[in-house]
Nucleic acid binder design. Structure first.
Lengths: 160, 160
DNA sequence: ATTTACAGGACCGGTTCGGTCCCTTATCGT
DNA sequence: ACGATAAGGGACCGAACCGGTCCTGTAAAT
């Protein structure tokens, strides 16, 4: 269902939390406690995020993690990519010869565009948008960002 | 990686094939042969697509499948939804109380918007766009559809 | 020197997904 | 009317992926 993993979800929660917390380094343990997420998972995620350059880490006592850049400069695709690899809806978007019928396939180019479209839509959203959660619905207005939201078929979820 | 399943990919290939083939009902077996895809999978997919109303089916000898609507009236999200359920990047976009910390969570609303953004981007692409594969890059110009494609960080795929 | 806390990797268990097969039902052709 | 054809629906298995946990090493602060 175009799912992204739960860990990725968690990871973004962590990022948002970091964005909302103070400057000083925050220990993984504290973050886990504050976000109510399991510590091992949190630890793992923070490591990944740090390795990908989205977080800066300080080791030793009083160490911890902090955003490597201001929240305004971190986009959603960056976070997703850091957490679960490059954004690619289909395999053939990544590996050139992955598909056995690459020559026959009439769908590759379209898929690449679709992929781009998704990536682009996500690129418009920054961490700061997610973190600024002052009022209800304050966040970011996608419409105001150029993504037209009119006439979206708000797919009536099957009452399953 | 915001992946959608391989079967979904196949399913869309089938739809494109059907869009390109003639009017008459096409048997699953023929379709499988022409698309070079494994018959059982093809059969399964066609069934799903028919059940979801994207394909019309005729039983019995000389039966087969055909598009239920003209290709211009079928969108990508429709196909994806038919093939692998409602588009939802995170669980909490679907089930209201799925997340244990729903009240604490500061990210739900943003996620819903993100979800919408993706869905919207996909909605702009119709089956006909995928099928019209006459010239290279002829397809649909996303830019001309309102999706700004400038400045997309064309994520340099890791040379893996 | 000791304690704290990140770094990195190995390691399982469960769930989901890809893929195949079976039997039933309906339609066409002889 | 009968047989062949082809979809409808579901059961089933194996494999890959993912979520989750733990352990050992290394760096920094007190």
């Amino acid at each position: 269902m175009i799912r992204l993993g739960r860990l990725t979800d968690y990871g973004i929660v962590l990022m948002v939390h970091l964005a909302g917390a103070g400057e000083g380094p925050h220990a993984a343990r504290d973050i886990a406690a504050e976000t109510q997420l399991p510590l091992p998972a949190v630890s793992k995620l923070l490591k990944s995020l740090a390795r990908q350059g989205l977080l800066a880490s300080s080791r030793g006592a009083k160490g911890g993690y902090r955003l490597a850049r201001p929240a305004e400069q971190i986009t959603v695709p960056e976070m997703i990519t850091a957490l679960e690899g490059p954004i690619a809806l289909t395999d053939c978007n990544l590996h050139e010869g992955a598909c056995s019928q690459e020559p026959r396939c009439h769908v590759r180019t379209p898929w690449q565009r679709i992929n781009r479209a998704v990536h682009d839509a996500l690129s418009r959203i920054r961490l700061a948008d997610l973190a600024s959660q002052n009022g209800p619905g304050t966040i970011v207005s996608l419409a105001s960002l150029g993504v037209d939201t009119t006439g979206i078929d708000t797919r009536p979820r099957p009452s399953t």
